Simulated scan of single mutants.
Amino acid sequence: MKTLYDVQQLLKKFGIYVYVGKRMWDIELMALELDYLRQAQVIDEPTFVQAKLVLTREHRIEEKREQEKLK
């Protein structure tokens, strides 16, 4: 799992479709959904960790993008 698309496909397997309209919010909501799936023990720890790492990286990229807009 290397991209945000991969995380979306993982969530899709469980019937979870995330689209809020702002990429940053989508990433944050996906992270919450992953937490819920892990708490329910539906996904294993390595998959959870890899997906969280992808989301963390994408979140940082979006934060940088928003900072650039403010300059």
Rank of each mutant, 00 (worst) to 15 (best):
Y17V: 13
Y19P: 00
V20E: 10
G21Y: 00
G21N: 03
K22N: 10
K22I: 08
R23N: 03
R23G: 02
M24L: 15
M24T: 08
M24H: 08
W25F: 15
D26S: 05
I27Y: 09
I27F: 12
I27H: 05
E28F: 05
E28D: 06
L29K: 09
M30G: 06
A31C: 01
A31S: 14
L32I: 15
L32R: 13
L32A: 09
L32F: 11
E33P: 01
E33G: 00
L34N: 00
D35G: 04
Y36C: 04
L37N: 06
R38V: 05
Q39T: 08
Q39R: 13
A40W: 12
Q41E: 14
V42H: 01
V42I: 14
I43G: 04
I43S: 01
I43Y: 02
I43W: 03
D44T: 08
D44R: 10
P46S: 08
T47P: 09
T47W: 08
T47V: 12
T47C: 10
V49T: 12
V49A: 08
Q50V: 07
A51M: 07
A51E: 08
A51Y: 07
K52C: 01
K52I: 05
K52S: 01
K52T: 07
K52L: 01
V54R: 03
V54A: 07
V54I: 13
V54M: 03
L55A: 04
L55N: 05
T56V: 04
T56N: 10
R57S: 03
E58N: 12
E58I: 13
E58P: 09
H59P: 03
R60E: 12
E62G: 01
E62A: 04
